[in-house]
Amino acid sequence: MKIENRLYIVTGGASGLGKQTVKSLVALRGYVGIIDINIEAGNELMKELDEKHAYFPGKADVTSEAQIENALEKIMTHYKDCPLGGAILCSGVVLPPSHIKGYGPENKLTSYQQFKHIIDINLLGTYNVAQKVGDLLLKNQPFGDDGERGIIITTSSIIGLDGAIVGYGTSKAAVAGLALPLARELSEFGIRSISIAPGPFDTPILDTGTDMKAPPCLFPSRYGQPNEFSDTVIHAIINPMFNGSVIRLDGGLRA
């Protein structure tokens, strides 16, 4: 499926991996609807890239059905003459806010409320947008000889695949586990689903404010760069054989 003159929805699109994905799609003459809770960063990115190619409809929380429906409606209206190609879902958090306490010695174990907070954003928020974008993709006229209608790309993590950090790891394992069932459910309609599982990337999410520090990848012996994630997104969109799979993007690192 091509990128030029197609519309893509990017969640978490105002920072980190999402922001670079927005820039890469626009560089290839795609159009992007940015979904993010950071109003200032969203507006700033839209101005930087020109509203013609990147549109931020205002604050939208992925855990709210009403806010996502409203944001998607605004984006689809803004780009009413541009066919929707799919979504890249990058929003997520590593740790809950400090006011949600853990349990056990020094409150360092994961409480139910901490666990719920992470699951609500990383898993349910991901599915909230995936389902609503999927509903829009169903209305597409099929593209090309394969009859493709679009793609949904989620962002997992090697933390989820390798079993670390109770709340974050479980949420990202579930996101990875969504890729194949979603592909199977949507395949008869020509909609693909994949997940990308990055290792540590040089983005603001690495700054957790704790003493946790991610190791460098095996090779190259460094953190990943955001453009290496967005390059993978671009390739997955273009190559129709990417479907139902989880792509590790970790330089050989295991959590």
Rank of each mutant, 00 (worst) to 15 (best):
F242Q: 08
E188A: 15
M46S: 15
T11A: 11
M241I: 07
P57M: 08
Q67P: 00
D211F: 11
G177H: 07
D36F: 07
D36H: 03
A197Y: 03
T11C: 08
R254L: 14
I205A: 08
F201R: 01
C82P: 00
E185L: 13
R222S: 12
S221K: 15
K172T: 00
D231K: 10
I153F: 08
G190M: 07
E69N: 13
K59D: 03
G190W: 07
A164Q: 07
Y31P: 03
N43P: 01
E73G: 10
Q131F: 15
R192L: 11
G251Y: 10
L178N: 01
T11R: 06
K132P: 03
A60L: 10
I3N: 07
T154C: 10
D135R: 11
H117F: 02
G190V: 05
G199F: 09
I119E: 01
P216G: 04
Y103G: 05
D36G: 06
K2W: 12
N70A: 14
K59R: 14
P83S: 09
T126D: 05
D61E: 07
M46C: 12
K74W: 06
Y103C: 15
A173L: 06
N227A: 13
K108L: 14
G12Q: 05
I68F: 10
T203A: 07
A27D: 13
I165G: 00
R192F: 11
Y223V: 00
A60C: 13
V175E: 00
A66V: 08
P198M: 08
K80M: 09
L137E: 04
R254Q: 13
T21A: 11
M241T: 05
P97F: 00
A54H: 05
D211G: 07
S187W: 12
G86K: 07
A71S: 12
K52G: 13
I39M: 06
G190R: 04
L178K: 01
K74Y: 08
I165E: 01
H235W: 13
E148M: 13
Y55G: 04
L186V: 03
C217Q: 12
E4D: 13
A130R: 02
H99L: 05
Q67I: 02
I205P: 02
V166E: 00
C217W: 15
T155K: 02
L182Q: 02
C217T: 06
G30M: 10
S171M: 01
G104L: 07
A176D: 01
I152V: 10
D135M: 12
T170Q: 02
G144C: 12
G125E: 02
L186T: 06
I35Y: 15
A183S: 13
L206E: 05
E228T: 04
V166F: 04
L95V: 00
D120K: 01
V10N: 02
F219I: 13
S15W: 03
S157I: 00
E73M: 11
A14E: 00
